[in-house]
Design a binder for these strands. Sequence first.
DNA 1: CCTTTTGTAACCATTATAGTTACTAATAAG
DNA 2: CTTATTAGTAACTATAATGGTTACAAAAGG
Lengths: 135, 135
Amino acid sequence: MYSSKLSVSIHILSLIALKEDHPLTSEYIASSINTNPVLVRRLMSRLKRADLIKSSTKLGVTGLARAEEEITLLDIFLAVEDNRELFDIHSNTNHKCPVGAKIESTLTPLYGNIQKGTEEKLAAVTLADITKEFK
Amino acid sequence: MYSSKLSVSIHILSLIALKEDHPLTSEYIASSINTNPVLVRRLMSRLKRADLIKSSTKLGVTGLARAEEEITLLDIFLAVEDNRELFDIHSNTNHKCPVGAKIESTLTPLYGNIQKGTEEKLAAVTLADITKEFK
DNA sequence: CCTTTTGTAACCATTATAGTTACTAATAAG
DNA sequence: CTTATTAGTAACTATAATGGTTACAAAAGG
């Protein structure tokens, strides 16, 4: 399975989208997630690089870089998840065997098709769809 | 990402489906995958428990338990993969925060829906669809 | 100038996968 | 019945990814 990075990132972005007058620091966000501030900063760093949030030292997070309706779960997923392949394929098979020779090239497009479906579903949900559950 | 267990299992089942006169032992199968016989036996054990293959000591694998057209990739996936959840969700969130209180119940059905799509796509492909690539 | 907070580096613990050795028990076949 | 072969499994190791932690440098608002 994929890591909880997507889930935690959605949590972070929801807090930012809903923020009121709190100073939104990694410390504050971490207390809602119940984890370590450094873990939050690591994800925030990637979310910033993907142009999803705005932040600065001294002030912490100042807000989203785009409207919540314009941020999809796929944007978040691509920003924080490194290992995006859905299924791993074993390599170094024995190419003298007809199955060993073609298994990788047979499975790759098949898995790619399934993954495309997953990413389309992630792209169909926006941060606004999530945050409306918290209001 | 999911482990290579599905890919390796498809490899094993393809060899069985295509077998000619070879005695199909874990040793022989491992040489096509280029891995260890014990790893093959571990997967075979689960495939047998899921009623996908027939095997016995002394003879090794004697064949598929069903026609290739009746074995879907979902059958194989369910037989060999333990961690089937697509996305991990962080738990122990701070329930005093509105986001922390509802994040899990918000994401669970959403992820479930995406995973359902994945499993439907796996169910739409049979072992016969794979093996025809090797003939 | 000074205080706060991000942004990272450098660790450690835990878990899952993959690989390996070694053994038991089943069983086909002579 | 005996024997040789092989599945089945236990136990161990190596490796990699995740999650968590401490520590510190650099940015920047006031």
